[in-house]
Amino acid sequence: MNRRSSNRMEPSHIPTTPSQAPTAAGLEPFEHVVAEHGRTVLRVCRAILGPHEAEDAWSETFLAALRAYPELDPSTNVQAWLVTIAKRKAIDQRRAAARNPVPVNSLPDQPGGAGIPDSPDGQLWKAVGALPRKQREAIAYHYLAGMPYIEVAGLLGNSESAARRAAADGMKNLRSSYQGARDDE
């Protein structure tokens, strides 16, 4: 220890943060966006694309969101913004898959009817995949992301009542395929 001495009066450290500037942009750290909405966006991607392709769409969605984030108006509904990006990424992925078909995600054949599903949700996911696109998306946006039908309609490009009907029809279709999954519980 080689402490030097001084006669000068001096203050202590004054604990402050390095900068007291207000949060000018008003945007929270992107980490919070991922923590808050990551699971919801994954659900939406799974419902639109299926469990296997969903992860790539999720990654693309959040990377695009991170890129654009500093310019985002802080008053934006972040979840709706993310879902919009996810829809676009899912469409891109579908188009790419259509151009370059690769048989990676074909589900194994299962005996229909009373057969035991290969996984607890296997039958259900298969049923979701078999829905018409608008029904599938309406369920994803309304039931899984919790968006009101007026916003669902904006994403589907139809009316609020058509969006409501698409979700109801989709659920009706899933109910009829649901027996196997319920028996498995």
Binding site: R43, P120, L144
Partner: peptide, 27 residues
């Protein structure tokens, strides 16, 4: 209520921590 059971199954959360890790690397 089969509807809510369906929604619950479709909402079953996967762990997004692995995806998060991938995102950080890609970013």
């Amino acid at each position: 209520d089969p509807d809510s059971a369906i929604i619950r199954q479709l909402s079953e959360d996967d762990d997004v921590s692995r995806l998060h890790e991938r995102l950080a690397a890609a970013a």
